[in-house]
Design a protein around this nucleic acid. Structure first.
Length: 282
DNA sequence: ATTAATGTTCAGAA
DNA sequence: TTTCTGAACATTAA
């Protein structure tokens, strides 16, 4: 599920433990499933990485980017259920990749755990990151987006605002949970055409994006019922306790205390919203 | 026992 | 050109 807050939590959790550690090996973990996508294939990837260090670990939208000491990059996409952990994964069956470091250190391995296996691991030549994940492929980060950028991107399309928020080419980092939560806090109906929002609502939207995402980072993300998402040390996030609409279909809105939370489907994804707080036209 | 749903992304079609 | 559809995969709930 990792969206911006979850990926940010992963990066913060692993950074100090992996930076400047010399990579000893990288292996595919024992599993009975179809292997996840790794490019280049593991033997070549191992050759590219062993003996080098990660000089930085950072988040790009919903991706984790490792800056390698030779200028190359390792990019991990958690997609639906991917997780970076330093120890104690949710289970042993779904461990996918192990990156081991020469000791000593508090943790000598970094694991990529992924239950569904939709995640990807990709190594990029020096300089290839920009063309691969630069503007055009990935929009500006959601936390960097300002009111004027929201005004511009909303103004030039009649796509439904919820669907627009999920488009990573427009703005990077917002996913299905936070899109619903953001629109609820902004009081915007998820089906509103983006270009129908007036300046007041664009401003509310921009504010809600920041407040929801920053609070979610503070809470170390949302751990849902299946418990899939954890931080780097296998502890739950707590933002699920702050959800006002996501997965609350049929319940009463926690904000207005009278609207019913409804579920609709947009772009083949569930959207949750309050019938009272998020009216069709305002 | 099927079927639908689950946090994401992308190739290919409309 | 932009936008929509289905598939990639494993698991759980209906």
């Amino acid at each position: 599920m990792p969206e911006l807050p979850e990926v940010e939590t992963m990066v913060r959790g692993i950074r100090s433990h992996v930076i400047n550690r010399t990579i000893e090996n990288i292996v595919m973990c024992r599993n009975d499933f179809k292997p996840i996508s790794v490019a280049p294939k593991l033997p070549q990837l191992r050759k590219k990485l062993t003996g080098h260090q990660f000089v930085d670990v950072r988040r790009l939208g919903k991706r984790i980017v490792f800056d390698v000491s030779d200028g190359s990059n390792l990019v991990i996409e958690p997609r639906m259920t991917g997780l970076m952990v330093l120890s104690d994964p949710p289970d042993l069956n779904h461990l996918r990749i192990q990156i081991s470091f020469h000791g000593p250190g508090d943790f000598n391995s970094l694991w990529f755990w992924d239950r569904r296996g939709l995640g990807t691991v990709t190594w990029l030549e020096p300089g290839a990151l920009e063309s691969k994940l630069g503007s055009g492929t990935l929009g500006p980060d959601a936390l960097e987006f300002d009111v004027s950028q929201w005004t511009e991107c909303c103004g030039k399309t009649s796509r439904e605002i919820k669907v627009l928020l999920l488009d990573q080419k427009v703005v990077a980092g917002i996913g299905n949970i936070y899109a619903s939560e953001i629109l609820h806090r902004a009081g915007i109906h998820p089906m509103r055409p983006a270009n129908s929002l007036n300046a007041n609502y664009v401003k509310k939207l921009a504010g809600a994006v920041r407040s929801v995402l920053l609070k979610a980072i503070e809470c170390e993300g949302s751990t849902l019922g299946d418990g899939t998402y954890r931080n780097a040390l296998n502890q739950n996030g707590s933002y699920q306790n702050e959800h006002r609409v996501y997965m609350r279909e049929g319940q009463t809105c926690l904000s207005c205390e009278k609207g019913e939370i409804t579920r609709i489907v947009q772009a083949q994804r569930s959207t949750f919203y309050c019938l009272n707080c998020q009216q069709e036209r305002k």
